[in-house]
Amino acid sequence: MKLYPRQRHRVLQVVTKLVIPFVLMFGLYVQFHGDYGPGGGFQAGVIFASAFILHGLIFGLQQTRRVLSPGVLRVMMSLGVLLYAGTGAVTMLMGGNLLDYDVLAHDPLHGQHWGIFAVELGVGITVTGVMISLFYGFASKR
């Protein structure tokens, strides 16, 4: 993908800087409000990634890479999966079946709440990492 950081899209740059915090905020909302309305880890991850993709498109990949390095992305996508599977491992250690969140707290409903929170977070982290990696991968070929 061709990116034109040096061209003077001053308006776009300023607007982008204004918009990105709101996009990130919306991502957080979707991540943690998924219990009550539409949304969840996957959608939140995509929204988070879109903020960085927007940054990359407007400021150029070099700038974005300074904010979020490929090494961090690698760690993110692995950690998300580990968090999800690790939640399963913890439920097993606490005496339940794989991914049986009931055992995570004294009260099954609380356990479910914590379990869903953890796995959605895992999904969100992995998806954010992978989606930005996909963008880096396709954008950094030239």
Binding site: Y36, P108, I116
Partner: peptide, 10 residues
């Protein structure tokens, strides 16, 4: 049983 109002999330 699970909690969240959003059944899809549950």
């Amino acid at each position: 049983e699970v909690g969240p109002p959003n059944i899809v999330t549950s």
